[in-house]
């Protein structure tokens, strides 16, 4: 294989992995804490993309300072995190925690279907473009190839998210509480932890991360109906490969999927989708808990 191709695969793979990590980390956080496989994560992504595209449009139309466009991305995600936390967790999931896990998945599937139309009701069916932030950052030549700086910046954003998560979980009080709840929900409750509040906050964080994935990707894509559908199942694949509920797992899963997809796109485009789900199936068969299984509490 020639060097240039190798570099393209690695850089593309890293960019794609970063995108996948951003989307999957929120899903895995929610699964880890609430044990809910949340299909509405696809809606968070789609809403994030739409809201960011809209705000970016408004921002640049008003001819405000150019870099403020980035602010809009984070603003959109934060706003959606809070809203979805209240609507989905408070309004729906809290009534279902005692039910069968399949029922909960199906309820989130139902909410996902409904939200697909809410998007159309708000934003109609025409695509949105919010290319300005991407244009703003320009491009870089690596080994004679041109890459958009905006895409490269995704690697940085993902690494920042990973670092913040790591810091929160290992160095803060909230992180310790979270680990306690993950390890044994009932025990934590009896020790005075407000599990309901922890659930709400985690869900908001998860929703924020899902929306951020969409919001940050928005400038690079045409934002149109249906963008959440593929994301759900991709994020599932990443999370399953890494280990459901594990943050390092999401990172590894994203890298595995990202690099192998980039490799297949450049070497054998016919197998692009096949590769991702084949890896998912192989991991499930050989190591159902995923490559990075989170610790399990002994229930005896």
């Amino acid at each position: 294989m020639d060097l240039q191709l190798l570099i393209v695969i690695i850089v593309d793979g890293l960019i794609y992995s970063s995108y996948l990590f951003m989307v999957a980390v929120g899903l895995t956080v929610i699964f880890g804490v609430q044990k809910v496989l949340n299909v509405t994560h696809g809606s968070f992504f789609a809403f994030g993309a739409y809201l960011a595209a809209t705000l970016i449009g408004v921002w640049y139309n008003a001819e405000l300072p150019a870099f403020g466009g980035f602010l809009m991305i984070f603003l959109a995600a934060a706003f959606l995190g809070v809203v979805f936390g209240l609507v989905i967790e408070r309004g729906l999931l809290r009534y279902l925690y005692h039910r069968d896990e399949h029922i909960v998945v199906l309820a989130t599937f139902a909410a996902f279907l409904a939200l697909e139309d809410v998007i159309i009701l708000i934003w109609a069916t025409d695509p949105y473009f919010a290319y300005q932030p991407m244009e703003l950052l320009g491009w870089t030549d690596i080994a004679g190839l041109t890459f958009d700086n905006y895409n490269l910046s995704m690697v940085g954003v993902s690494m920042t998210i990973a670092l913040i998560m790591w810091f929160t979980l290992t160095r803060t009080r909230f992180g310790k509480i979270l680990l306690a709840v993950i390890f044994d929900r009932e025990m934590s409750q009896s020790m005075g932890i407000n599990v309901n509040k922890v659930f709400l906050v985690t869900f908001m964080i998860g929703a924020f991360l899902g929306a951020l994935g969409g919001a940050y990707v928005a400038p690079t894509i045409s934002v149109q109906p249906g963008i959440g559908v593929e994301v759900v199942v991709l994020a599932f694949a990443v999370v399953v490969i890494g280990g459901m509920g594990s943050i390092p797992g999401a990172l590894i899963g994203a890298l595995v999927v990202g690099i192998s997809r980039a490799a297949s796109v450049h070497l054998l485009p016919e197998v692009e989708l096949f590769v991702i789900y084949a890896i998912m199936a192989v991991v499930l068969v050989l190591r159902p808990e995923g490559l990075f299984a989170p610790p399990q509490a002994r229930k005896i």
């Binding site: 309820a107 599937f109 139902a110 909410a111 279907l113 409904a114 009701l121």
Partner: peptide, 9 residues
């Protein structure tokens, strides 16, 4: 889809 999802919920 809103109606479908709503029914299911």
């Amino acid at each position: 889809q809103l109606l479908m999802g709503g029914t299911l919920l």
